[in-house]
Structure formats: structure tokens, C-alpha cells
Design a protein around this nucleic acid. Sequence first.
DNA 1: GATGAATGAGGGTTCATTCAT
DNA 2: GATGAATGAACCCTCATTCAT
Lengths: 209, 209, 209, 209
Amino acid sequence: MTIKTNKYPDLYQASLELFANFGYKKTTVEDVAGKLDMTKGNLYFYVKNKKQLYEQTINHALTQWKDHVKKAVDKKSDPVEKFRIMAISAKGYIEKNDPLRRVIMNDPKIFTLSPTEDRFAETNQAAMTILGDILKQGVEEKCFYPMDVDQVTTYLFSVYMMFLIKTYGRANPRSAKKLFAAALELNLRGLLAKTNEENLVNKTPVNPN
Amino acid sequence: MTIKTNKYPDLYQASLELFANFGYKKTTVEDVAGKLDMTKGNLYFYVKNKKQLYEQTINHALTQWKDHVKKAVDKKSDPVEKFRIMAISAKGYIEKNDPLRRVIMNDPKIFTLSPTEDRFAETNQAAMTILGDILKQGVEEKCFYPMDVDQVTTYLFSVYMMFLIKTYGRANPRSAKKLFAAALELNLRGLLAKTNEENLVNKTPVNPN
Amino acid sequence: MTIKTNKYPDLYQASLELFANFGYKKTTVEDVAGKLDMTKGNLYFYVKNKKQLYEQTINHALTQWKDHVKKAVDKKSDPVEKFRIMAISAKGYIEKNDPLRRVIMNDPKIFTLSPTEDRFAETNQAAMTILGDILKQGVEEKCFYPMDVDQVTTYLFSVYMMFLIKTYGRANPRSAKKLFAAALELNLRGLLAKTNEENLVNKTPVNPN
Amino acid sequence: MTIKTNKYPDLYQASLELFANFGYKKTTVEDVAGKLDMTKGNLYFYVKNKKQLYEQTINHALTQWKDHVKKAVDKKSDPVEKFRIMAISAKGYIEKNDPLRRVIMNDPKIFTLSPTEDRFAETNQAAMTILGDILKQGVEEKCFYPMDVDQVTTYLFSVYMMFLIKTYGRANPRSAKKLFAAALELNLRGLLAKTNEENLVNKTPVNPN
DNA sequence: GATGAATGAGGGTTCATTCAT
DNA sequence: GATGAATGAACCCTCATTCAT
């Protein structure tokens, strides 16, 4: 009795890699099928059309990313710590998941600020909530300055995403690291209430690997 | 002697609008020719191929944007003022130039952090220099904290670009304005040396229109 | 001993409706299976292939139509009466059996005059015989003019079929009724021996409902 | 200086023949292009898509048929003569234009009684008008019985079309001829006012070739 | 400068049919 | 009897690019 194998994980992986390497247009449905050792026709048994294959693939990958960060953040209790660990774990994940990074880089609309035309609204919202909760907590506990949490959340989320996407995997990693550190410092400087600035002293090492 | 009318301005405008509306792939060479009341064949007299048409068009538009900001910045002398006016005039320009904004939104690679594969390296560099000079001056005059100017320049430049692109033209303008103000404050808070924080009081109105 | 339910009646009905609505080409085997709450694969247990499914379905429906007319005709004895009742009952049946009508409308080859390539030769022959017998009887009894019965049978049969198919179910029913009456009158005028023309006075009402 | 050759006549002919031989579905756009010694791509320069190619082709052919009949009818003045010559010339044309006949045979919807969904409404209307005018004239001149001209026109038109289409080219031509003669006689018998029945004596030979 | 026509290389989709379980 | 999966063969249509005139 064989275990019915769920083909979607493989499917999403193959698909993500191809879209990353060749972009949406140049990736053929036949390419994807070929990588899975199945025929074009059969691929259409699992997926409605090329566009949907693409969106499902990305959604799957984004969800995994978000879950990974969420898990890391939940281990800390201090907002500043949470903020740092969030930034670091998001960075760590995308550093190692190059295909996802490249796909996003080619399709900037994946992170839109307008929920209307956001094909991944749900996933993106869930991810933003992680950040929003940290800021909210920080403001309540007075370690962050009293800000308009929603606005700052939106801003920081979109900025971080694009920043991570564009920074890693390219140029030399050393300069990427410095860039990341500079950005993190700048933003934390901005966030902190003046009385708390001693927090700028780095408690969590930026690059844990 | 007849005045030979230079067709490129019209060409760039038509092209930009179409690429903005339909994206690179869906915009056909015939669309562009049609908008200019010429035939496909004739368009190839002016332009080598579709890709080059696209890049020339964007380069043209980016250069105009940069010149507009440069002109505004040169009118101020104080670094904080310069920083503010830079942010505001860049924002003002893109707010009114929707096609450019939409084109960039569809092609995130227009602003790359790696100069290697940057098709608009020259123009982007020139634009970044404007920002870099402001920061450098600010650090020298000790109104900004002593930072790694190149890193921060790179970070802020890319972050601002993407932020502007994604924010304006969509959602309601009121929320865009608030978002912009929050971002500007956050970044200035981060930049300012502690002794200068009274500068946070807004001297230049954020929204001059 | 379980009562094995014969699935063919349902199968034919579902099939007929789908072919009527979408035509042969656009009706997929999966559509038919779906309407019967079975899978494509299982449908192939009952039917050899799509083409055969189509032909069986039509043959089934044509046979029922023919039987209905036959039954009505057999109740009369006078040829003129028979002719009229034949026309009327055929019309009545098809008026109420819209799917059949639409299928025939989409596939004119169902009624071919050449028996060679007639996929429904047997059924069509049986139907034509009903008409032929009426004419023969009419000629023998001298109420119809002395004609070449086979030719006229063939002509009238095909003409009536196409006429019924094309007339009913569409446009407004009132005009259809008038059209039918005009056709019937024209043909009866043609058929009648001159001495019998008083028969044109309608004994059987054209529209008995 | 070469004369610019209009490619449409060849195009329509090639197209008509292929659609006649293989039907709409089985005729490939590539088949048509091949027959014209051009590429698929170039065919799309002349024609929007397959469906439109088909409809233009048929419309062209129907129009030619109609014109041919119209020309013949216009040479006569007596309604009975006109009626006969109309029937005969229509028959003669379709007898020799087998591709058109076969195309129509495969697509019964070409002659619809409902103008709504008639893709060839205009052409069909023009053709019906020829018949309608004859009947009207005949009624006015009292050689036809006083009928509802519109109804009878519609009936006779659709009946004749289908009859011609289905009769010729198939089976043996001898039986076709007899069938046609029988039909014509039947219909004329029906049309004639009683006082004019001597007209049934055939003045125009049925088969002039 | 301008045009109409031609080319050719794809790529996405659909579906009838089969078959192991 | 029934199912889910797999196959494979078509076919339509798009478009960037070229070029003779």
C-alpha cells in the first residue's frame, strides 16, 4: 500500500526555482512540468493555468517565510528585542532562500501598499501584523516614541521587504551586511524614545550565523 | 530649410504612457507606433528594438526627475533643509508624473543596489550623489550623527525611491500624506545628532501645494 | 437481488441537454460525466467514445419522436386527416422537446437525403415510411394527385424536418404558428387532386392545445 | 510596376474549399495558409481570427450566389417565370459550386429563421427579398393566390435553401433531378391561383444545361 | 522617411482517451 | 463499477523583427 504522495510541495519548489531563474514570461509551463517529470497536460490537472501556478507558488513561499519569522519573534518578550530578531530572522531566511528573493525582485507588485490590488493581501497582512504588534507593544511599554503605529508599520514593512529583497544575494555579502546594519541602526534610532537610547547597544548579534 | 521636428519627445511620452498602462510585455511595438500615428516599420527607423525603446524612455524620464530635484535642493544651504526639500520635491514630482511612477512600479529592477546589472546606473548614480552630498555636508557640519555616509546614502536612496513609487497615486491621498510624514520624521529622527533634535520641528511644510 | 438501475435513460437525457446547449465540440466528456455525478473515467465504462455517445443519444431521441407520431397517425384512417395529424403531432412533440430540436439544429447531417452516410438511416427510414404510407394511400384513394410517391415523400420529409427544427422555440410563438399554418396550407394545396379541394377546409384544428 | 494583387479572392477560395472538405474544426489555420503559400502568421495579417475567416469566406460566397440568381431573375418579367428561373438558377449555381454547398451542409445555422442570431443576416435578407418581390408581384397580378407574402417567403426560402443544399452533389444526379422537379411542381401547384393553373405547363425547361 | 507585407518561433490550453488500483 | 491521474496530440494566436518598394 503506497502512501499517496502530495505533489504540491515538489510542484511549488520546482516552480519557484524556475520563475526565479527565468522570470514569469520566459518560464514555460512545459519547463515546470519537465522538472517534475510529468507532461504539460498533467500539470494542468494540478493547476488551473500558468498565472495561478505562479500565484500559488509565491503565496506558499511567502507564508513559509512569515511563519519562520513569527516563530523567532515569539521567543522574545522585549519589543526592542523582538524588533531586532524580526529583522534578523527575516533577513536570515531570505538570505538562504534565494529563489524566493529573486522572484520577488522580478515582481515588485508582490508587496503593494494598496490592499485592493494585492494578490497576496492575506499573507501580507498576516506578516505586517507581526511588525505592528511589536510596535504597539513598544509604544505601550514606552520604549518606542509615541507614533502612529499603523502608518509606521506600513512604512517599515514595505521598506524592509524591498530592502531585504534588493540587498542580499548580490554584490558582495560584506557590503550587504554593513548596509543592513546601518539601516537597522537608523531605524532603531528613529524608533526609540529618548530615555531608552541605551538600547541601541546591540544585545542580539546582527549576524548570528 | 525646413525645421526638422524632433520626434523623440513625443516618442518618449507615448511610450512611457503605454508602458505605464500595460507593462513591458503587454505593450506592443504596434501600440506605440499607433499612438504616434506611424507604422510599426517606421518606428524601427527611430529605435533599434523594443528593449532599447523601453530603456531610452525610462532614462529620459529619470533624468528629468533628477534634474527637477537637483534644482530645488540647490536653493537651500542647510543640510536639514536640503534633506527635507529633496524629499518633498522628489515626492511632488512623482505625484504629478503618474506614468513614470507606474512604470517603475512594474519594473523594480530600475532601482537596483548592484551597479553591475543596473541599466540606468549613470542616471541613478547622479541622483544618489545629490543625497550623498547632503548627508556628507550634514555630518561635516555635525547636524547629522557621524555615520557611514555611503551605506546610509545607498539605503535611504533605495528606500525612498520604492517608498515614493508605491505610496502615491493609489489609496487615498490623505493616508499617503500621513505615511510620508511619518517616514520622513522617522528618518530624520534617526539622522539627527542628539544635540540638534530641535530641528525636528518642521520648518518646511511637508505639503507645499 | 438488487434492482440494477439502468443508467442509460439518465445518460441520454443529460447528454442530450448538454449537446443541445453547447454543441458537439464544446460539450466535453467531463461535462456529461459531471451532470451524472460520475467521473470521466467511469463514463467510459458505459460508452465507447464521445462520438458514439452522441449518436446513441440522438438515435434514442429520434426513435421516441417517431413513435409518438406513429401512434397519433394510427388513430386516423383518412389520408388527408393522417397527413394533417402527422404534421401536427410532429410539431407538437418537437415544440415541447427543445433539447432535441436544438441538437438537430446544430447538426444538419442528422437528416440526410443520402442513405449512404446517414448515421441514423434506420430511424429516419422508419419515420419516412410513415409519411410514405400516407401519400400512397392518398394516391390510391384518389384524394391526392397522382405523384411520384417516393420523390415527394423524400422531399416533404426533409423539408418538414428542417422546417420544424428551425421554426419552433425561437422568435415569438405566434409568428411560428402562422408560418406553420401557411406551410401546411401550401403543401396541402399542392397535394390535393383538384376535385377534392374542398378538403382544404380545415377539419382538424391546427393547434389543438 | 506590378499591379497590387488583391489577395482576398484567393484567400476566400482556398478557405472555402478547406472548410468544405474538413469542416470548421478540422480545418487548421495553418492548412489555409499553406494552401496560399503563406505562413500562418501572415494569414493573420489579412484576417482577425479563424472564426472571422470562416464567416467572411461564407459571406463572400453567399453574396456571389445571390448576385447570380438576382441577375437571372431580372431578365424575366412574369412572376411565374421569375419563380421558376429563380429556383433553377439557384439550383444551377449550387450544383456547380460544391464547396459552398458542403460548407452550408455542415453548418446549418448559416440559414436561420431568426435574424437575431444570424451571422449572415444582411446577405440572407437580400436573398430573401428577391423571392419576396416575386411573390408580391405574383399576388398583385393575381397569378398567385392571395397569401401572407412574408410568411410564405420565409417558409419557401428556408425550405429551398436546405433542399438544394441537401439534394445536390450526392446520391445519383438523376434522382436529384427528379426530386427537384417534384418539389418545384408541388410548390407551384400550391402557389397558383386556380384560374391560372395552365401555367403548370412547363415553359422554362427545368434543367437547361 | 514611410509603408505594407511577410516571417517564424514559440507558448498556453484543451480534451479525448487510457489504465492501474 | 468507480476513480484519480496521466498522456499526448493538436491548434490558435501573438509579435518582434525584417525588408523591398
